[in-house]
């Protein structure tokens, strides 16, 4: 069973003068999905998010949120969105509670439901003790949390977060990622970032953006394998000559990382690690450690964006 589509955008374009900064972007987001939007600085991630939240109007294209057309029924469509812009939109002289209450009212939460919504949002973002504090006096990490709380207080179906973990310390990043993952189970989350680790950890799907276009989209696991070469790193205490390693079956290249560590790439079909270990035992190379190379998103990303640029 597939979950219902909560956000769909078709052929969005946006010009800035004569220059097209967004070119024909189409996106779909389902309930319970976390989509990562990945790209260099200036690739158009933030602009795309502004288009999707109605703070910018596209020159052409259509956006539907929970079945409401953003251009025709903006009020109903926007009530289903929670948005955290790049800079959290905080009124520095307000108290956290007052600010979140204001955000809830602004998004049409019924007066009677506000206290519950406030408690839930604060609890989810770890702000229980910060309610009476003035936002301007909070640290950057806490301000970011207030920004996220503001985006989720009305329990929106679609949550759009523009670089939510920028400027946070590692523990906070871990907390926020866990929160996003939790939100992603019941809502749809669209997340932009240029941290690849973030995408690897929390996103179900990835779209890579460059020069205002989506150039590649896939599930994040499949993408990690994109262009991946099988290989391993092995430590041999009694190191042989490189040529001996190259002579093993299936080896495509071997290089020395240090006197005793070697990186060996092999073709996917042959079982080179086993062959190496057998030879090593036979010739007394004293094999100590063998670590398979993991495909990672970083390589895939670099490869994809370079392909496109070339």
């Amino acid at each position: 069973m597939t979950a219902p589509i909560t956000l769909s955008a078709r052929n969005l374009t946006r010009r800035h003068g004569r220059r097209e900064i967004i070119r024909g972007i189409s996106l779909q987001l389902r309930r319970g999905e976390v989509l990562g939007l990945l790209g260099h600085n200036g690739a158009g991630k933030s602009t795309t998010m502004q288009l999707l939240t109605g703070t910018l109007i596209p020159d052409s294209g259509q956006i539907e949120i929970c079945g409401f057309d953003l251009a025709r029924q903006p009020a109903r469509a926007k009530a289903c969105i929670g948005y955290l812009p790049e800079t959290p939109p905080l009124y520095r002289d307000m108290r956290v509670d007052d600010y979140l209450t204001f955000a809830a009212k602004l998004h049409g939460v019924a007066r009677s439901a506000i206290p519950a919504a406030l408690t839930q949002a604060k609890q989810r973002c770890g702000l229980q003790d910060a309610g009476r504090k003035i936002i301007g006096t909070l640290s950057k990490g806490y301000q970011q949390r207030v920004g996220i709380a503001q985006a989720i207080i009305h329990n929106p179906d679609v949550i759009i977060l523009d670089e939510p973990t920028v400027g946070l310390d590692p523990t906070q990043i871990r907390d926020i990622r866990a929160l996003i993952r939790e939100l992603g189970n019941a809502h749809s989350v669209l997340l932009s970032t240029h941290l690849l680790g973030e995408v690897e950890n929390i996103c179900d799907r990835v779209e890579i953006m460059q020069h205002g276009q989506l150039i590649y989209g896939d599930t994040s696991i499949r993408m990690q394998r994109f262009g991946h070469q099988s290989g391993f790193v092995v430590t041999l205490l009694a190191a042989p000559a490189l040529d001996e390693l190259r002579a093993l079956s299936g080896v495509e290249s071997a290089e020395a990382l240090s006197a005793t560590r070697f990186k060996i790439l092999h073709d996917a079909n042959s079982n080179t690690p086993a062959a190496l270990l057998a030879v090593a035992a036979e010739r007394g190379w004293q094999a100590q450690q063998l670590t398979p190379l993991q495909g990672n998103l970083e390589d895939a990303f670099v490869q994809l964006t370079q392909n496109e640029a070339a």
Binding site: T53, G54, T55, P74, A75, R76, A77, K78, A79, I81, Y83, P85, T87, P89, L90, Y91, R92, A103, L106, H107, G108, Q150
Partner: peptide, 14 residues
């Protein structure tokens, strides 16, 4: 200037 206008613009308010 404080970029809080975005919050009003993105909320369901004309």
């Amino acid at each position: 200037r404080n970029q809080t206008l975005v919050m009003l613009m993105a909320s369901p308010v004309c």
